[in-house]
Amino acid sequence: MIRVLFVCLGNICRSPMAEAIFRHKVNEAGLSASFQIDSAGTGNWHVGKPPHKGTLTILQENDIPSGGLKARQVVKEDVHRFDYMIGMDTENVGNLRAIAGATGKAEISRLLDYVPAATIVDVPDPYFTGNFDEVYDLISEGCERLLAYICEKEGLTDQG
């Protein structure tokens, strides 16, 4: 089982969007049995709440299921449970590395690190900017590239 955790600040915009998109891509590839996918935030402001309306709207517009998404905060145990911890921006990655210290087993990186042609390194936070369309496009491409990376690294083949 390959465990992937997507992380942003509050876990109501970017990381639940990435969780839903990545899960959808994994399902389309026929690899659902090989993955556990989750998301969390570094902050606790929205714990227990559903994703932001903008996130739910853009997922619905793109026929991406969003059921079951609920905000939670990253906990220390996550760095031992997950193989990949994917931050949406540099600050998220810094926070994850601080939580992990020297003990975590997870590979920690930014989502856009997997997009060689990306002109930016951080997925902007639509909670502040309202740019859910741009964020969806960035996350979708990042998830596509991340899945290809993991499949190659873990020796998985597309079953879809």
Rank of each mutant, 00 (worst) to 15 (best):
K25H: 14
E28F: 00
F128H: 15
S15R: 05
T129P: 11
F128P: 03
R110L: 02
I99C: 07
Y114S: 06
D83N: 13
I64P: 07
G48H: 08
G41N: 01
P124R: 12
L156Q: 10
R3Y: 08
P51Y: 14
E107L: 10
G87Y: 07
Q60P: 01
P116R: 08
G43T: 05
A20C: 07
C13T: 06
T119V: 02
G94T: 12
F128Y: 15
R145P: 02
G43V: 01
A33L: 11
G10L: 07
I99D: 09
K153R: 14
D137S: 15
Y114A: 02
H52K: 05
H24T: 13
G48Q: 08
K25R: 08
E28N: 00
L146D: 11
K105G: 15
Y84W: 14
L9F: 09
N92G: 05
C8K: 08
F22G: 03
Y84T: 02
V26P: 13
I64R: 14
V93M: 05
S140R: 04
E19R: 12
V135G: 06
F6Q: 04
Y149C: 01
E154T: 00
A117C: 06
C151Y: 01
H52I: 03
K105C: 07
K49C: 13
H46F: 09
G94K: 13
I139R: 09
E28P: 00
A29Y: 08
I2A: 04
D78Q: 09
D137T: 12
Q73W: 12
I86A: 02
F22D: 03
E141M: 15
G142K: 01
A98S: 13
K49H: 15
E141R: 14
I86K: 02
L31M: 11
G160T: 08
F128A: 11
E134C: 07
S39G: 14
T57E: 15
A29M: 04
I108Y: 14
Y149V: 05
V7H: 04
T90K: 09
A102Y: 10
Y149L: 00
K105I: 12
A118I: 08
G54A: 02
S34I: 00
Y149I: 00
A106R: 00
R23N: 09
D89W: 10
I64Y: 10
V4G: 07
E134H: 10
S39N: 05
M1S: 07
V115I: 06
P16K: 13
M88R: 12
A29K: 13
I120D: 02
I139P: 06
P51L: 06
P124S: 04
N27M: 07
D133R: 05
E91A: 13
R23D: 06
S109C: 08
N27Y: 10
V79H: 11
M88G: 06
E61K: 14
W45S: 10
V135K: 10
R23C: 00
R97K: 15
V47M: 03
E134Q: 12
E19M: 11
A117S: 15
E77G: 02
I108D: 03
G130I: 11
V123T: 02
T57H: 14
Q36E: 13
F128T: 01
L138K: 10
M88E: 03
A33V: 01
I37H: 03
K76N: 04
G101L: 13
S15T: 11
D113R: 00
